[in-house]
């Protein structure tokens, strides 16, 4: 199992009553409206919602890439918002992103070796044997034998392999938390299983926390410990994954569940 029943320790990251307001044609629009969220080591939180729900804005706030207009973002209890730029840049390495479109996430002119080197440069803990570490990283995401892949370019990989490289790069930077924004949405169902199993393994061996942004509530139930449902900038429902999906209360959650499990009912 993915360690579903452990009690979470103190959070790695905490968002407290966070809001982000964008001006759309002069009219203020609360894209994120009073969102509070905690993610602990070894815990997976799925953030579910459709485009425009504010889930991607929340993930960018969690990464320290977007500054909220209201509220507080705490990394191990320390505010990200009051840090000077340099400290923030260093601290936010603890949160690493994995994006939806892994094709666009890499510099196409860099080899896999160079891509991993850059991430290892960023890691606060430097390893003695770099080459060995890179091969290990690639092996750990099943791009093996790792040394065969080092000289290749991202475009030589399939979509599923590229997504696994994105995960290897994130891990190389030595994060405590991985923020994955729709990492499976382009992927075939058969690749989905591989990527999810890989994430579970990495979580168990490194006690990683995951903020997993998705519109797929079926995957959220199967993969996450807790599910948070966002609708129009607000959290409308949250709780243990089985509970939220098994017994949805909010109308929007009900709709998501109904359409996701349509073919299960048909069978």
């Amino acid at each position: 199992m993915s360690g579903k029943n452990r009690t979470p320790p103190s959070p790695i990251l905490e968002l407290r009553n966070v809001s982000k307001i964008y001006n759309r044609g002069g009219i203020p629009n609360r894209a994120v409206d009073g969102v509070s969220l905690k993610i602990s080591a070894g815990e997976t939180v799925a953030l579910v919602g459709e485009s425009g729900s504010g889930k991607t804005s929340v993930s960018r706030i969690a990464l320290g890439l977007v500054r909220p207009d209201e509220g507080e973002v705490l990394l191990h209890g320390q505010s990200l918002l009051t840090m000077d730029k340099q400290t923030l840049r260093r601290k936010r390495l603890a949160m690493q992103p994995v994006f939806q479109d892994s094709g666009a996430a890499f510099n196409p002119r860099r080899t896999i070796q160079q891509i991993l080197d850059q991430a290892l440069d960023a890691n606060p803990i430097q390893v003695a044997d770099r080459y060995k570490r890179k091969v290990e990283l690639l092996d750990s995401v099943r791009l093996s034998p790792g040394d065969d892949y080092l000289r290749r370019f991202p475009h030589e990989l399939s979509g599923g392999q590229r997504q696994r490289l994105a995960i290897a790069r994130a891990v190389a930077a030595g994060p405590e938390l991985i923020v994955a924004d729709e990492p499976l949405s382009g992927a075939d169902v058969t690749i989905r299983g591989q990527v999810l199993n890989l994430l579970i393994d990495l979580q168990l061996s490194n006690q990683l926390g995951y903020l997993f942004v998705t519109h797929d509530i079926a995957i959220a139930r199967a993969f996450a410990h807790r599910v948070v449902v966002m609708y129009k900038g607000r959290i409308v429902e949250e709780g243990p994954a089985e509970e939220v999906v098994g017994n949805p209360r909010h109308d929007y959650t009900k709709r998501l569940v109904a359409s996701a499990f349509r073919f299960v009912d048909a069978a």
Binding site: S2, T190, G193, N197, I200, A218, A222, F223
Partner: peptide, 15 residues
Amino acid sequence: AARGEKDERGRFITV
């Protein structure tokens, strides 16, 4: 796989 089912070892089904 599409249902997000897991095997007896708690691994997601892959094909």
